[in-house]
Every structure is written in C-alpha cells, then in structure tokens.
Design a binder for these strands. Structure first.
Length: 510
RNA sequence: GGUCCGUUCGUCUAGAGGCUAGGACGCCGGGUUUUCAUCCCGGUAACAGGGGUUCAAUUCCCCUACGGACUGCCA
C-alpha cells in the first residue's frame, strides 16, 4: 500500500462545527493509525463567502483537541501552497488538459439565463432540471455556438465558465470504503461548472487537482459529498489519473439532538449546548456562539465523545484517549446511518474525564477561574479544594458553584435547607459545637481531630448526627450539599469556622 | 419533482444466518454516605413494515414507509 496521506480541507466560511471537527478527527485517526500524514488545506475558492478569522479558528480548534497537522499553511510542506487561492496558476494549467481532450467546454450563459432554464424545466414537469448535453442545447456554449463566436467571446473579455462534459448514458460504479459500491448512470448527472467566471475553480476541480498533486491516498469527508463522487471519479479519469486515484470514505452526518435534520450552527443556541469547539464571535454581527472549551469541557472528553459518534471499536468500553483512539480506529467500522448528537452524553464523558484527572492537573485548569474573581490564593490550597469537589463537577465551570465557600464566607443561606434542617435547639447545639472547636489547638485543627471531637460530643449528649452536622454544614457553606464536612472545617481553618458558626447563629431565622 | 444514501432500546451503539438481542447515556427503584455528588445493585426499553431465499433470518435479496444528503459560477 502506498503511503497514507489524508487531508482535512475546510472552507473558511465560518467557525468549524462539531461535524467538521469529527471529520478532521477521523482523518487524523486514520492517518496516524497507518503512520501517515495529516494535511490541512484551506479551500477558499469562494471569495464571496470568506470570513475573517475562520482560518485561524480551524487551526486553534485542531490545536485544542490535540491534533497535530503535518503539512499545512502554517506548517509548510513539500506540496504547497496549502491554500487554494494561492494555487490559481496550477488550476489554470490543469483546466487546459480537460479543454484539450474534450472533457470540458466553455459556456456563456448568465446566472439569469440559468435560472430561467431551471424554471422552464420545472414548469414543464421535467425530472431533469440541470445543465447537461440535452438541456444545454438551448443554451449558449461551445456546442451551440460556432468556433468563431466562442473565440471572439473569450477574446472580448466577457465572462464565461468552463463546464465538465458529462458522458452520456454511461453506467458507473464507484466505490466507498464505508458504503461499498454505488451505482449511477451518468445521464442523471449534470455538466458541473469547473471554472467560474472569476477565474477560480469550483470545489470539484480544485479538489481533484490538489488531492492528486498532494498525493492524497484516502479522501475521508462528509456524506454530503457522496452525490458528487461519480463526478470526481470521472474527473480523475479525464485527467488520466485513475490509477493513482485515492480511496473514498463518506462519513455519516451528525443529526440534531431532537427533531429532524442535520445538526446546524443555529441548534446550539436554541437547544442550549455548544455546536462549536471554541467560542466564536461573528466578526460582522458581534454575536457570540458558545464553545465547548469555554463551557467547561476538557478536550480529551470532547474528542472521545465526538469519536464515538458514528464509529465504535466494537467493545464494551467507551473511554479512550487520543492515542487509544488511534490504535483502535477502523474506517470500515464507521456507521452508515446518521448519528444524533446527545448533549447529555457529552456531559457524562466530561464528568468521567474530570474524575480521572488528578487534582494537581485540574488545579492548573481551575486557577484562572479563581483569579477571574479577584481571589489570589496559594495553589496548594486550590489543589486541596479541587480534590474535594472534583467528584461533583460535571463541567470545569462547575468548580466555583461547588467550591465558592472554600474561598468566601457565605452571605446567604439556602432557605429550603434552613426550613428542613434548622430546629428549635439548633442555635444552642451550634454554640456548644463552637466551644468544642474553639478549645482545639490551632495545630490540631485537622479533619481527624475536629471530627473526633464533634462526634464524641454527639455521642455523649446522645444527639442525632444529622441534627448536628446538617445545620453545621449550613452555617459553614450556606447550603445542604458538598464534600466531607470536616474536610471543609480543616480547610477553611479554625478562625473562619468559628466566625461562620457565629454568623449563622445570629443570622438564620426560620 | 429527480438521483443517491440510510433505518437495532428515547439516544450512542454491539451484533456480520441459529444469542434469554449485549453495553453505555438517560430515566425509575434500592444500597452506601451526616448532606450533595461519587460508587454499587436492580429495573425500564429495540431489530420500521411486508414479501421472498433458507431447516433457520436482526443478519442475504426485493418492495413499501420513514429519515437524510444532493440537485448553485457554495463548499
């Protein structure tokens, strides 16, 4: 087998959404599995749709999820340039080949005339509504005009396009790694535009030329490209490259979590979950779309979740890091049907990853969240707190909610908990607890000592654990849940603990 | 309208002629815990429908239904 080389070739028309990220990921996994190269090519042949910052966004996204690009606009390589707008001359050279061997021809119809043609065909009830050898007979092109007319039109500088000459009535069998053989008759296909009037190629043209020149071995892309696969195969043949044609794999689409249709950029805001890896600010409108990173997802969890959408290694395991994904990846095990994206499962993955990340590593991630609030505390303390709360975090952004009371004295108390836990004799009990804790020497104010002391008190007075510990938790944290109570006590320290007890006793009224 | 692709619990999926159709998320119940979370145990729930082929179909073939993509001088 020849060297595996794959490419991810996004169009910089906006932020990459999770479908695009998955395509990139599958390409990467496949490349690395086979010790091959992963290239990033920017397909910016449509200048009207170019969006500022989109290119950079793609690279930042790949970087965040841990995908390393082997060749690309930033990394360089022997097959550049890796940006299609910088390859104009290459395409111009190549279109000549097709023009010369009769695989392509000039056409001079205006957009308006094309619209009219489609409307006419639709009204006539024709099942064919596109440009082909038959419908083209009523249009302006190299077949309906004389050689002289064509020549003078081009020489006059008037706009024209170049179309592919689709063979008439040819049975074609194209192969896809995931779907097997797909049969089509070329009579159903149209004479696609290969070169636009702005002098740039369309996707089809640029794609084939670049994939060939860049020695791409496998084309792994979204299912939306399956209908144009026959055209692409024909293009390879027309160039005389069929022996070096890459293998194709079309990935199933990602569907909306509920309802119909494929996942779109708008779904996120409507359904309350991100569809983008990173937060994106629209340069024109200033609108901000949520990103997984900013919402508190770990990149490892994110790719794990994405990888298992439409692919499965076939074992009862779900947690895989990048390296393991590479090892297990198999294109032939990719699902054929579309996969519905599940925000719930995404959260579960994140929770799993937070749980297995060490408190030390998590601290580095969490420190900025604390600094953001103007709190400057020793990171050893933060690490301790992180250890206490990480089991109850689903997203990184949950940290503050779970741990605020480790950093700030509670100013209000959860009324529901007050109602449930605050009893008639609670103030009295808490004052006794206060006295006990106060009598413990500073250097003995540990989880163990404080716990022993309070439990001893409860036993001696024959009190109920819950009736003492729950209100104590309430005055210390302001709420009803959280880590082990005595871990909290030892963490915030004697002075703060005592202060909070007095605060609570004086402030809480049922 | 046409072409193509698809269809296993609500969701992600395992399965590749013979299984009590397995796992995970979610949901429900129970246990552990001073609380919440974690954790553990249990439960819920699926082969879209109809024809074939076969001793035997979730698995192979056909049809229907449904879903999706494409049908642009966008990718």
């Amino acid at each position: 087998m020849k060297k595996v080389r794959v490419r991810f070739a996004p169009s910089p028309t906006g932020p990459l959404h999770i479908g695009g990220v998955r395509t990139a990921l599958f390409n990467y996994l496949f490349a690395k599995k086979h010790k091959g190269d992963f290239l990033l090519r920017i397909e910016d042949t449509d200048q009207t749709r170019y969006v500022e910052g989109a290119e950079d966004y793609v690279m930042k996204s790949l970087e965040w999820i841990g995908i390393k690009v082997d060749e690309g606009i930033k990394e360089g390589g022997n097959f550049g340039p890796y940006k299609q707008s910088e390859r104009r001359e290459i395409y111009k050279e190549h279109i000549k080949i097709l023009l010369n061997n009769g695989s392509a021809y000039y056409a001079f119809d205006t957009p308006e005339e094309l619209d009219e043609m489609r409307k006419r065909l639709e009204e006539a009830g024709s099942s064919v509504r596109h440009y082909n050898a038959f419908t083209g007979k009523d249009m302006k092109n190299a077949f309906t005009m004389s050689e002289k007319e064509v020549e003078s039109w081009i020489n006059s500088g008037k706009p024209y396009v170049i179309r592919f000459k689709m063979p008439e009535k040819e049975e074609l069998v194209v192969k896809d790694i995931i779907r097997g053989e797909v049969k089509v008759n070329t009579s159903q296909l149209d004479d696609k535009v290969l070169f636009k009037s702005d002098g740039l190629p369309t996707y089809h043209m640029a794609n084939i030329v670049d994939d060939h020149l860049m020695q791409i071995s496998h084309v792994i892309r979204g299912e939306e490209w399956l209908p144009s696969l026959p055209l692409h195969v024909l293009l390879y043949k027309s160039f005389g490259w069929e022996n070096e044609m890459p293998l194709f794999a079309h990935l199933p689409l990602l569907l909306k979590p509920s309802g119909k249709g494929k996942l779109s950029k708008r779904d996120g805001d409507q359904l309350g979950f991100p569809v983008f890896p990173l937060e994106w600010k629209d340069p024109k409108t200033g609108d901000i779309s949520a990103g997984y990173r900013e919402d508190g997802y770990l990149p490892e969890a994110f790719i794990n979740m994405i990888a298992l959408l439409g692919w499965n290694p076939g074992e009862d395991r779900e947690i895989y890091n990048l390296e393991e994904l590479v090892k297990k990846f198999d294109l032939t095990k990719v699902q054929k049907g579309g996969a519905r994206f599940s925000p719930e499962k995404a959260k579960w993955f994140n929770q799993q990853y937070i749980k297995k990340t060490s408190a030390e590593d998590l601290t580095d991630i969490v420190v900025p969240l604390i600094k953001e609030r103007g709190i400057d505390i020793d990171s050893l303390y933060i690490e301790k707190v992180t250890g206490f709360v990480k089991e109850r975090m689903v997203l990184i952004t949950d940290f503050w909610n779970q741990a605020a009371f480790f950093f700030e004295t509670p100013t209000e108390y959860n009324q529901k908990i007050v109602k449930k836990r605050w009893k008639e004799d609670t103030p009295e009990v808490l004052i006794q607890v206060y006295d006990i804790l106060e009598s413990i020497r500073d250097d003995k104010f540990t989880t163990e000592h404080t716990e022993d002391a309070i439990k001893e008190y409860i036993d001696k007075r024959e009190l109920n654990f819950g009736n003492v510990l729950n209100p104590l938790r309430l005055v210390l944290t302001g709420t009803g849940g959280g880590p082990h109570l005595f871990d909290i006590i030892s963490a915030i320290g004697k002075e703060e603990t005592l202060k909070r007890i007095m605060n609570g006793v004086s402030k809480i009224r049922k």
